[in-house]
Design a protein around this nucleic acid. Structure first.
Lengths: 221, 221
DNA sequence: CAATCCAGAATCATCGATTATGCGCGAAAG
DNA sequence: CTTTCGCGCATAATCGATGATTCTGGATTG
């Protein structure tokens, strides 16, 4: 066994719940986090709550300031651009590595993620679609042996999600034929060049759309 | 004023001390962290200590496992390779951005960091040399407006440090003429191509040296 | 009218004690 | 002789209470 099946700490449970709440923008970007309210909501005491929040700062989802507590990381056009620039660099690099080193498990997980993504309706269940979409991107890069690269990309993909929720940009922007399928096929075919190319342009398209939508959103307020 | 001069929390003080202790390998890689001992050492209670450790997981310097507490992240050839690969990608990209966007402050901080590095003896005060060296690398990329890129690179530079301490690889590996000066001059001259080229080959050299030294170290034990 | 100051309230940070869990070791079983 | 079990100890995790700091809003002053 690889997992000794340890009992989860309260801190870890709260961590997972909080992350999910933030990623779904239930705790909106920039919001002040009131420890007492959350303590009550999670029916626990301050210590595990603070610990969970401290751990969330690792992902960039929460900010901490001495004597002023925690708040949900705000969103900004600058951060959005940073995120997508870094994804463009790292995710493409990771995919190339994955194509070189991926096992059959990697391949099949891509196929599975692609299928699930295809079977999810962006309009019907937005939340589920986002989850499937992010899972697909993670599946693509899962083949690289570089754990650090995987984790960093995963973090960036998480950060992207809030912007999609915020702008309501769920579903590929009517890109026409399924872009994801093209990436997946090239990857499984072990065509690194082609896969990288397609992923890069998919990310570029996402970047244009998200940036534009977010700018519009900011202006409207 | 930009800084309201808030009083530092105990948690933050402990965080800084712990980070420094880990980066100097005073708390060696892989070491189990005993909460009671550290609590006594820092003359505080468990809560701020746990919080500081939780925050340190953000940098990858500390690992946490449910019901088993914290330990210093272990070192490995694989992680070393990951770190240096990501530095090669991100730091070069960041430098290019910095050359494009850097202000005069950025330039002068590079010159200053270079000077300090030159005036520090690797053999005489190894710790100080490492600090100056890392500061120089951070100064190079400080010009990019992308905060996320800066932070990520800074984290990677921190992670590298432990390997240098561990292998005793302090000082440029007798690279001959001062490599750092070459990078700095190209950067200040706003020659992105040349600066990137020089930084890339500096990092490549560091990679070869560190990888070899670390492998030797691992074999000897 | 604007800026400053000062309670009092709200909130954060820390502590010491308590509970829960995992680990090591020796005894018992096979 | 090896494996398994269970007890007791070391340690981690959590709690509720207390001490500090910041924030708020209204009175005061220039």
């Amino acid at each position: 066994m690889t997992a000794p099946a340890r009992k989860e700490t309260i801190s870890s449970r709260v961590l997972a719940d909080l992350r999910s709440a933030i990623l779904r923008n239930e705790l909106p970007p920039g919001a002040k986090i009131n420890l007492d309210h959350l303590r009550e909501r999670f029916d626990t005491s301050i210590s595990p709550l603070r610990e969970a929040l401290a751990r969330l700062t690792a992902d960039g989802l929460v900010l901490f300031e001495d004597q002023r507590g925690f708040r949900v990381s705000p969103v900004s056009a600058a951060e959005l651009d940073d995120i997508l620039e870094m994804r463009a660099i790292l995710e493409v690099a990771a995919l190339c590595e994955a194509v070189r080193h991926g096992t059959m498990d990697w391949e099949s997980n891509i196929i599975r993620a692609l299928h699930r993504l295809g079977r999810t309706s962006p309009t019907n269940d937005a939340d589920q679609w986002l989850t499937s979409h992010d899972a697909f991107h993670n599946a693509l890069i899962a083949g690289t042996p570089r754990m650090m690269l995987r984790r960093t990309c995963a973090g960036l993909i998480d950060l992207s999600r809030r912007y999609r929720v915020l702008t309501g940009l769920v579903g590929d922007g009517g890109d026409g034929a399924d872009v994801h399928e093209g990436i997946a096929m090239a990857a499984v075919r072990r065509d690194a060049e082609e896969a990288a190319q397609r992923l890069a342009s998919h990310l570029a398209a996402e970047r244009t759309l998200l940036t534009r939508s977010f700018a519009r959103l900011s202006n409207d307020r």
